[in-house]
Design a protein around this nucleic acid. Structure first.
Length: 934
DNA sequence: TCGCTGTGCAA
DNA sequence: TATTGCACAGCGA
C-alpha cells in the first residue's frame, strides 16, 4: 500500500494536551465574561482543528488518564508523588474538553489502571500491524520509545509549531543508536515531573555516553567496574533504582483495549452540540471558523464588517463596540491603546482590491509582515500590515496555504513594484525576504527605520519598541501580549486568529511610519543622508542576496573530523583525570580552578576573576605549562572549542540545500562593521592547524566552481596613515613595503634588512595597538615584556611617526569639543564619556575616538566595494556569486569560466572603492575551499 | 528555561 | 590597563 492511500490514525494524549494548553497561556489566560479560564479548551480545540484540517486523518481517538492509581503506583509508591495538585482551572477544563471531544464524535478511550501513554502505545502498535500510519499527538517526550516506521510522535514543539518525529529524528534528537534505548535513557536520567528518580547526578549527557558504550541500563550495571570515580559510585549505589526507573518509564503495550478500526473512523461532528458549547465558552472566532454561517449569540460586529471606507475619519473598531449596551465587558486592556485609531482587518478579496488602489494613490507607505519564524529564509508570512498616515493601519491576513497567500498578495504586486512609492519598514531586509519566499518582489525606494537610527545613534538599541518610546513617547503593544512570554510556551503567529493580531500588526506599521517622519529629518541634520541612501540601503539588498545564496559546506568531512576530535578529547580527558587524581568537569572553569589551585596548588597566589573565582583563561594557563596537566587542559580546551562551536554546530545549521545561510546584522556594531549570526561566519578558525581543517569544509558550489577570496591588505593601517598624513608611513605603503618590517626598522633604528622576526613581531603588535588606542601597560601585556620596555617602544614609535601622534591628539581634542567622531563617509559615533572625570570611563572613550574612525572607515570602504561589485555583476549576467563578508575580505563562489574576469574586476573595484592618500591593495586567492583561497 | 560568567574564535 | 563582534558550556535562580 502506498503512503498516500494509507490509513492515517491520530491518537491524542488528552490530559497532556490540556496541561500544555493551560500553561501555554498561563501569563495571559483566556478568561471569558463568566470568569471561566478557557485557555485549555481553546488550545485543545485549536490543535484538534489543525489536525483535522491539515493532516486529514482517516481515524482518530483521544485518550484520557483516569484518576485511579495505575500499576506504576503499585511498583513505586512515590510515583508522581511530588506532583502538585491539579490547578482548579484544569479540573474545570477536563470535563469541558471531554464534552468537546464527544461533540466532535471522536471516541474517548480510557482504561482504569493504565495511563494514556500505555493505551496509546498499545493502540499504536496494533494500528501499525493493521497497516496504519499512526501519529501520537502529545508534548510528552517519553512517547519517543514507541516510534517506528509507521508510528510517529506528533509533538507541539518548543518553538511553537509542530515537530514530527520518526525513528531517524528520535535517534538524532536523543543522540542514541537504537529506539529502545529511549527507555534506558529515561531510566538513567529520571524524570522530575513524574518523580522517577533515575541515577542521581546522571543527566542526558552522561546517560548518552554510557549508553553508547554499554547499550542498556543492564549493560551499564554489568560493567560498573569499568567506570571510574564518582560515576562508578553513583551507578553502584543506585542499581535497583535505575532498573525500577527504567520499568516505570517503559510504556506498556499489552493494555486490554480493543482496536476497533470502525469506531475510530473520523466522523462528522455534532454541529448543534458544538455550536452550543462554543457559544457557552464564548469562542466567537472559532465558531466562525468551524461553522462560517453560524451567528454567534450576543456578539459585537466584527471589525472587518464595518462599512466605512478607506481614508475618511478615523473610527475605531473597539469604539463601535463601546456604543453597544451589552458589550463593555468585551473590551480588553490592550484595546485601550488603540481606541482612537483607525486599524482595520482586510479579509476579503474585495477589500484587498480597494486597499491596493488606495495604496497606489500614495507616495509612501510603511509595511510590516507577521510570520511563522524569526528565520527570514524559513518564515512564512501570515499577514501583512500597511500604514500611509498617522493612526492608520490595515492588516491583510494571509493563508498558510502558499497558493492562497500568493493569490491574496497578488492584489498588492503593483504596490510593491511601484518605484514611485517609498517603502518604509523596520528591518526591511527581513520583510523583503519573507515576501520573496512567496515570490513577491519588493522594489525601492526604501526607508528602514532601524538603519536610520543606526546611523543616528550607532551604539544605542534599534528595536522598534525602544525607538517608539524614545521618539514617539509611546509604548507599543508588546509582541508578548499576543504570543505570550517566550520559551516553551510561546505561541506561534500561525496559531493566532487574525482578529486577535490585527491591531498589534497595524500598530507596528503605524509606528514605523511615524518613526520615519521623526528620523528622516535627523538624518539630514547629521549629514548622513548619503550614507543612508547610497550605502546602507543599497547594501541591505546585497546582504539579503548573500544570505539567501548561502555557502556550501562539506558536512561529511566535518562529521568525520568530529569523530577524530572526539577520540582525542576522550584521551585527554582520561589523562587529565589521571593527573588530577579525580574526575571533574574540565570545561567548568569553576571546578577546574578548584582542582588546579586548591587541590594541586599549582601557584601560591592564584589570580581571581571579578566574581572571586579562580581565573583559568588561556594566558594564565600558558604561564603554567611546566605542569603536565596544564598543557593537556589547553589542548582539551582547544579541541572542545573547535568541536562544539564549529565542527558539530555548523552541519546542524545547513539547510536542505546543504548550505549554511548566515544572517548579517547591519545595525549592531557601533563602528559600522557588519556582524554575522547563526552561524557567525566571521570567526571561523584559521590560526591553528586544527582550526584550518574547519575552513577546508567551506567549499565551492560544485566542481564547476571555485572559491575566491579577496582581502584588503592592512586597510586599517593604511587608513591611519592616510588620516594622519604621516609621510614616512604613506611612503612605505606607496613603495609596497612590508609595513611591519618598515615600522620595525624605524622604531628600532636599524636597516630594514636587519629587522629580525622578533623586532617585526613587536612592531606588528605596536601597529595594531596604536589602532586600538593602546597603553604601555596593554602593550607590555600583549608582548609579555616589561612595562618600561613597552613604554620605550611607544615613545620611539611616536618619535618616528610624529604625525600619527599628532593625529591621535587632534582626534581626541576634536571629540572633546563635539562629543563625536566621524569616518571618511561621515558615519558618526557619539562619545559622550569623552569629557568624563572618571579616568577609566574617559580612557575608554578616548580609545574609541581613535579606533572608531579607523575601523568605521574600513567598514565604509568595503561596503562601498560590495555595492560597486554587485552593481557590476548584475550587468554581466554571471553565474558567480558574492557569498560572504568578513570585515576586510569578500568571498565569492566563482564559476571557473568567469574566474579571470571576476578576479580582475573584483580587485579593481575593491581597490578603487574609495580614494585615500595611500593606495588600497587587494589580494585575491582561489581554491577548492576557503583555506586554499587564502 | 533564562541570564550571567568565563572562555575563546575572528578581523 | 587594546577595538569590534558571537557562541559555547556550566551553573544557579
Amino acid at each position: 500500500m502506498n503512503k498516500k492511500n494509507m490509513k492515517k490514525l491520530f491518537l491524542l494524549d488528552g490530559m497532556a494536551l490540556i496541561f500544555r494548553a493551560h500553561f501555554a497561556l498561563i501569563r495571559n489566560p483566556r478568561i471569558n465574561s463568566k470568569g471561566v479560564n478557557t485557555s485549555a479548551p481553546m488550545g485543545f480545540v485549536n490543535s484538534l482543528l489543525e489536525i483535522l484540517k491539515k493532516q486529514n486523518p482517516t481515524h482518530i481517538a483521544v485518550s484520557f488518564d483516569l484518576s485511579a492509581p495505575t500499576f506504576r503506583h503499585e511498583m513505586y509508591k512515590e510515583y508522581k508523588a511530588n506532583r502538585q495538585e491539579t490547578p482548579e482551572d484544569i479540573s474545570i477544563a477536563i470535563p469541558i474538553v471531554k464534552k468537546i471531544v464527544d461533540a466532535f464524535n471522536i471516541p474517548r478511550i480510557e482504561k482504569e489502571g493504565f495511563e494514556a501513554d500505555d493505551v496509546i502505545g498499545t493502540l499504536a502498535k496494533k494500528a501499525s500491524a493493521s497497516g496504519f500510519q499512526t501519529f501520537m499527538m502529545t508534548p510528552d517526550k517519553d512517547y519517543a520509545q514507541l516510534v517506528d516506521e509507521n508510528t510517529f510522535l506528533y509533538r507541539p514543539s518548543t518553538k511553537g509549531g509542530i515537530e514530527i518525529l520518526g525513528p531517524k529524528e528520535v535517534l538524532e534528537k536523543f543522540d542514541l543508536d537504537r529506539i529502545d534505548q529511549v527507555i534506558d535513557l529515561l531510566g538513567l536520567q529520571g524524570d522530575a515531573v513524574d518523580n522517577i528518580p533515575g541515577v542521581p547526578g546522571v543527566g542526558p549527557k552522561t546517560a548518552v555516553k554510557l549508553l553508547k558504550e554499554y547499550s542498556t541500563v543492564e549493560g551499564i550495571i554489568d560493567n560498573v567496574d569499568k567506570l571510574k570515580g564518582k560515576l562508578k559510585e553513583r551507578v553502584q549505589d543506585n542499581k535497583e533504582q535505575a532498573i525500577l526507573s527504567k520499568e516505570l518509564a517503559t510504556i506498556k503495550l499489552d493494555v486490554p483495549v480493543v482496536f476497533d478500526e470502525e469506531a475510530l473512523k473520523v466522523q462528522e461532528p455534532n454541529k448543534e452540540e458544538l455550536v452550543k458549547i462554543f457559544n457557552d465558552l464564548e469562542f466567537k472566532t472559532l465558531l466562525q471558523r468551524v461553522f462560517p454561517g453560524e451567528k454567534p449569540k450576543k456578539v459585537a460586529p466584527k471589525p472587518g464588517e464595518q462599512t466605512s471606507l478607506f481614508g475618511g475619519a478615523p473610527k475605531a473598531a473597539t469604539k463601535i463596540e463601546t456604543e453597544s449596551e451589552e458589550i463593555p465587558v468585551e473590551i480588553r486592556i490592550d484595546d485601550i491603546n488603540t481606541i482612537d485609531k483607525n486599524y482595520r482587518l482586510i479579509d476579503s478579496d474585495e477589500r484587498c482590491k480597494e486597499l491596493a488602489d488606495y495604496l497606489l494613490s500614495k507616495t509612501e507607505l510603511a509595511f510590516d509582515t507577521e510570520t511563522t519564524s524569526l528565520d527570514s529564509l524559513e518564515a512564512q508570512p501570515v499577514g501583512i500590515s500597511f500604514s500611509t498616515k498617522k493612526d492608520e493601519g490595515y492588516y491583510v491576513p494571509l493563508s498558510l496555504e502558499k497558493e492562497e497567500a500568493i493569490k491574496t498578495l497578488a492584489h498588492f504586486t503593483e504596490v510593491f513594484n511601484n518605484e514611485k512609492i517609498l517603502k518604509i519598514g523596520q528591518n526591511l531586509k527581513y520583510d523583503i525576504q519573507v515576501l520573496d519566499n512567496l515570490d513577491v518582489q519588493v522594489k525601492g525606494p526604501f526607508f528602514d527605520t532601524m538603519l536610520a537610527h543606526y546611523l543616528i545613534e550607532p551604539d544605542k538599541r534599534h528595536n522598534m519598541d525602544t525607538l517608539s518610546e524614545a521618539y514617539l513617547n509611546y509604548k507599543p503593544v508588546s509582541i508578548e501580549t499576543i504570543l505570550g512570554k517566550k520559551g516553551k510556551k510561546q505561541k506561534n503567529m500561525r496559531d493566532i486568529p487574525a482578529h486577535e493580531v490585527y491591531e498589534y500588526a497595524c500598530e507596528d506599521a503605524d509606528v514605523t511610519l511615524q518613526l520615519k517622519e521623526k528620523l528622516s529629518p535627523i538624518l539630514s541634520e547629521k549629514g548622513v543622508e548619503s550614507l543612508f541612501n547610497d550605502l546602507e540601503i543599497p547594501l541591505m539588498e546585497i546582504l539579503r542576496l548573500m544570505e539567501k545564496e548561502g555557502v556550501n559546506l562539506d558536512s561529511n568531512s566535518l562529521e568525520t573530523y568530529s569523530v577524530t576530535l572526539g577520540e582525542q578529547i576522550d584521551e585527554l580527558e582520561k589523562d587529565i583525570y589521571q593527573l588530577a587524581g579525580e574526575e571533574f568537569t574540565i570545561s567548568s572553569p569553576k571546578q577546574l580552578g578548584v582542582i588546579l589551585f586548591e587541590k594541586m596548588k599549582l601557584v601560591d597566589k592564584p589570580k581571581k576573576t571579578k566574581t572571586g573565582q579562580y581565573a583559568t583563561g588561556e594566558e594564565i594557563l600558558q604561564g603554567l605549562k611546566e605542569h603536565e596537566i596544564v598543557g593537556k587542559i589547553l589542548d582539551f580546551r582547544q579541541l572542545n572549542k573547535l568541536k562544539s562551536t564549529y565542527v558539530d554546530a555548523l552541519p546542524k545549521l545547513t539547510k536542505t540545500d546543504g548550505r549554511v545561510h548566515t544572517t548579517y546584522n547591519q545595525a549592531v556594531a557601533a563602528t559600522g562593521r557588519l556582524s554575522s549570526t547563526d552561524p557567525n561566519l566571521q570567526n571561523i578558525p584559521i590560526r591553528s592547524s586544527r582550526g584550518k581543517e574547519i575552513r577546508k569544509a567551506f567549499v565551492a558550489r560544485n566542481e564547476d566552481y571555485i572559491f575566491m577570496a579577496a582581502d584588503y591588505s592592512q586597510v586599517e593601517l593604511r587608513i591611519m596613515a592616510a588620516f594622519s598624513g604621516d609621510t614616512s608611513m604613506i611612503e612605505a605603503f606607496k613603495q609596497g613595503k612590508d609595513i611591519h618590517t618598515a615600522t620595525a626598522a624605524k622604531v628600532f633604528k636599524v636597516e630594514e634588512s636587519e629587522v629580525d622576526s622578533d623586532m617585526r613581531r613587536k612592531a606588528k603588535t605596536a601597529n595594531f595597538g596604536i589602532i586600538y588606542g593602546v597603553s604601555a601597560f596593554g602593550l607590555s601585556q600583549q608582548l609579555d615584556i616589561p612595562r618600561s620596555e613597552a613604554k620605550q617602544l611607544i615613545d620611539a614609535y611616536f618619535e618616528e611617526f610624529p604625525s600619527v601622534k599628532k593625529y591621535m591628539d587632534d582626534v581626541i581634542n576634536k571629540a572633546r569639543e563635539v562629543e563625536y567622531v566621524e569616518t571618511l563617509m561621515g558615519r558618526r559615533r557619539y562619545l559622550r564619556d569623552i569629557n568624563s572625570r572618571n579616568f577609566t570611563v574617559r580612557g575608554m572613550a578616548e580609545r574609541n575616538a581613535i579606533n572608531a574612525p579607523i575601523q568605521g572607515t574600513a567598514a565604509d570602504i568595503i561596503k562601498k566595494a560590495m555595492i560597486d561589485i554587485q552593481a557590476w555583476m548584475s550587468t554581466q549576467d554571471l553565474k558567480s556569486k558574492m557569498i560572504m563578508q568578513v570585515h576586510d575580505e569578500l568571498i565569492f563562489d566563482v564559476h571557473k569560466d568567469e574566474f579571470e574576469l571576476m578576479k580582475n574586476k573584483v580587485q579593481e573595484l575593491m581597490e578603487s572603492a574609495f580614494k585615500i592618500a595611500v593606495p588600497l591593495e587587494v589580494e585575491v586567492g582561489e581554491g577548492a575551499n576557503w583555506l586554499e583561497a587564502h
